[in-house]
């Protein structure tokens, strides 16, 4: 199976080399190497120079598109190069590469079309359980998805996820760019594909900060809920017409 890691990177000069080293170390003792592609989303720092100097396989977006647009570029690349599995993998070192085997398992067995790496499934597996606010937000978004799609997704905002060939094609054609993680989950669910979850470990960011406060998270949550409802509704309507 051809596996591609899609690594979106925006101003990740401090982390990207570490992630690259992790991938190389991971590949050392495996017969089946995994490929990777770094999507440099118009970074303003030295990310591009670092990618260039270290000969890291990458695409420079000529304009900043945001995480959704960047990841979709990766899916388009995966589709063009005929990959069987594409894994979204953060460029800031949050995701643990050793869980790739777990996350690909259900797809390789054909049990799922999309697998989400979840922080909350097993308390022991993840040292980093994130803040109360994030967990609370996740719960509400997850409840909305359950009502709309009748499927429980514990960690809908997790960016550590793998998809199979069919979903790669779907995402390269149509991928939500506003709230990519929860919206793409809904996109897949409302098309009646199988989504499953596996517990993963997430580290705290190696360097840099993520900017979240109470108001932005409430704002985010409300918009996501609205987006989920609209997405679910519009996809169902289109399915109905066909």
């Amino acid at each position: 199976m051809k596996i591609l890691l899609i690594i979106p990177a925006y101003n990740e000069e401090e982390n990207i080399l570490k992630v690259y080293d992790n991938i190389n170390n991971y590949n050392l003792d495996k017969e089946e190497k995994i490929d990777y592609i770094v999507i440099n989303d118009g970074s303003k720092d030295n990310t591009e120079r670092i990618l260039e100097e270290n000969n890291i396989n990458h695409i420079n977006l000529i304009q900043n598109l945001g995480i959704g647009g960047a990841v979709q570029t990766g899916y388009k690349y995966a589709y063009e190069n005929d990959y069987d599995i594409a894994i979204q993998f953060d460029g800031d070192g949050q995701h643990d590469i050793n869980y790739i085997k777990n996350i690909c398992g259900p797809i390789e067995k054909g049990e799922a079309d999309m697998v989400i790496g979840t922080r909350y499934l097993d308390k022991r597996s993840s040292k980093f359980q994130s803040t109360f606010m994030r967990r609370f937000g996740s719960k509400i978004i997850s409840l909305t998805i359950k009502i709309c799609c009748r499927k429980k997704i514990t960690d809908p905002t997790s960016g550590f996820r793998a998809i199979n060939k069919e979903i790669i094609k779907l995402f390269s054609e149509e991928y939500p760019t506003e709230y990519p993680e929860p919206e793409s989950t809904v996109e897949v669910l409302s098309r009646k594909y199988n989504v499953s979850e596996v517990p993963v470990n997430m580290n705290e960011r190696i360097a840099g900060k993520s900017f979240v406060n109470v108001w932005t998270s409430i704002d985010y949550m409300l918009k996501v809920i609205l987006a989920i409802i609209i997405d679910n509704f519009s996809i169902r309507r289109r399915r109905g017409k066909k």
Partner: peptide, 16 residues
């Protein structure tokens, strides 16, 4: 915006 995104992606992939 949607068209622009598709355009940027296509151009960037071709550039690569």
């Amino acid at each position: 915006e949607r068209k622009n995104t598709a355009l940027v992606q296509e151009v960037s992939i071709l550039k690569k």
